[in-house]
């Protein structure tokens, strides 16, 4: 989780990712940022995020992103 927050802060600083609940709805992450994030996550966690995983529900907040990472690590 710590690692994820660090990555998020690198990509878009100035947001409190621990408390922010809707990264998509509040327009913090746009499609460019998401692609950037996906690239980082793939490298850091050695997973493969595919276009099908890119839905608002998965990127809503740090919690949901983390859940997605865990799920993909198990596959």
């Amino acid at each position: 989780m710590e690692q994820l927050i660090k990555i998020l802060e690198e990509i878009k600083p100035g947001v409190d990712y621990k408390t922010e609940t809707d990264l998509i709805g509040n327009k913090i992450l746009d499609s460019l940022k998401i692609v950037q994030l996906v690239g980082e996550l793939n490298d850091e966690f050695d997973i493969e995020i595919t276009p099908i995983d890119i839905v608002p529900e998965n990127f809503k907040n740090a919690e949901t992103i983390y859940a997605m990472i865990k799920r993909l690590e198990d596959e």
């Binding site: 499609s31 692609v35 276009p51 890119i54």
Partner: peptide
């Protein structure tokens, strides 16, 4: 969803 993500998440692009 079908062009931008397909291209930018493809292996060569990564």
């Amino acid at each position: 969803d079908y062009v931008f993500y397909s291209v930018s998440l493809s292996k060569p692009f990564m």
